[in-house]
Amino acid sequence: MSSSQHPIALAIEQRVGGDGRLLATVMCLPLVDGVFPALILAGAMGSVSGVFEVGLLVFGGSATVAVILADLDGTPREQVLTVLGVGAILLPIAAVEAALAPTIASVLDLAIFERFAGLVILAIAAQTASSRIADLIPRPAIVVGFGLIASLDLGGAELTVATDPELVVNGTATALVGVGFAVLVALAGPWLRANVDIDRFRFGSAVALGVLALSIYGFVPSDAPLSLAVLAMAGLLAFDPDQGLIFPPRESPVDAEADESLPDGGSQSDASNPVSTESDGSDDRSPWL
């Protein structure tokens, strides 16, 4: 990517290509690889703070930020329309998966599955932090698959579809938080590109994901939004208004056309200050030779 080397976004970009499809793949990936249902079953969205934590870290995480700032073309208004188009796909799928979560939970031992849900978040955090680490650990989808197998309990299976309206509302609200965050990033894109270090924010997001996993294991109180505090601190530390000074100024089209019009690659300063090649008979050699 042009501005960030986010491991997850880079891996997806090599497969799908295209900025709009890349954004849709990054934001919808938690729905496809089982991360979002795993977090629902683990009770990660049982509170308002949990809704914001999962929405900001999973759907609107650093990979989404990196894609919008580094790969998404167009004006901020055009980028917002692209994000809303992705949201139109994301929200109904999230609602359906949240509605089916109680039925899935009826055939699982949730105490065992929650441990694998924490491992999934840790795997995503490791992938976010480093592409080298990502090559050494299993993919989140594989961890979810092993969790389903290990926690399978057919003794409590139910043939009817059970739904929980609260889970549907929380799941949809979580996806909505991610989409809303992506819209804000698109609107503030020009300012963020000039003042925020994307890679620094990526490492902070990885730490916040690790804190979220600890809350699933019970090491951090679930009612304390510590991961949100870590994410906010990551955004503060990523603020770097001087980073734009390291890039050289772009050459204006007028200067470029003037340079191309000069013969033999001569510069404009050479043309405006011609040097006579006629000799007056004196010694032209440099005194340093």
Rank of each mutant, 00 (worst) to 15 (best):
D71L: 15
Q79C: 13
V80M: 05
D71P: 13
G85W: 06
I89L: 15
I124W: 12
D71H: 12
F113H: 00
E53S: 11
G55P: 02
A105I: 10
E97K: 12
L81K: 13
D73Q: 14
R115S: 13
L119R: 11
A94C: 03
D73P: 14
E97Y: 11
V67S: 05
G60K: 01
A70S: 15
S106M: 13
P102W: 00
E78G: 12
P76V: 04
L69P: 05
A94E: 01
L72K: 04
L84E: 10
D73V: 15
A99H: 06
A126R: 07
V120E: 02
A94N: 01
G118F: 07
V58K: 05
V86S: 02
P92I: 02
L90E: 05
T64W: 06
A126V: 08
G61L: 00
A70P: 04
V58Q: 06
G61S: 04
A94V: 02
V120T: 08
L122M: 09
D71M: 15
A111V: 14
L122G: 01
A101K: 07
L122I: 14
L108M: 11
I112Y: 07
E53C: 08
T64H: 04
A98S: 14
L81Q: 14
F59I: 01
L69D: 04
V83N: 08
G60I: 03
P102C: 00
A101H: 08
T82D: 11
A94D: 00
V80P: 05
I93F: 13
L81H: 14
L81N: 14
A66Y: 06
Q79D: 15
G118K: 07
T64K: 06
R77A: 15
V80G: 01
A99G: 08
T103D: 03
A95C: 06
L56F: 07
A88S: 14
A117W: 05
F59R: 00
V54S: 01
D109S: 12
D73R: 15
V86Y: 03
T75K: 07
A126W: 06
G118T: 13
P76A: 03
A95S: 09
I89P: 11
L84K: 07
L122F: 09
A98K: 09
A94P: 01
G85H: 03
L69I: 09
I104E: 15
Q79F: 12
V58P: 06
A125T: 02
E53K: 12
A123P: 07
L119V: 11
S106D: 10
I89W: 13
I93H: 10
A125L: 02
V96Y: 07
A88V: 14
L110H: 06
A126M: 11
F113M: 03
L57Q: 00
R115E: 15
Q79L: 12
A66W: 06
A101W: 08
A117Q: 02
A123E: 06
A126Y: 05
P102F: 00
D109I: 11
A101V: 09
A117V: 02
E78C: 09
V80H: 05
T75E: 09
E97S: 13
A98R: 09
R115G: 13
G87A: 01
E78N: 13
T75I: 10
I93G: 07
F116T: 03
L90Q: 08
A66T: 07
A125C: 03
A99V: 06
A88Y: 11
V54R: 03
L69F: 03
L69G: 03
Q79I: 13
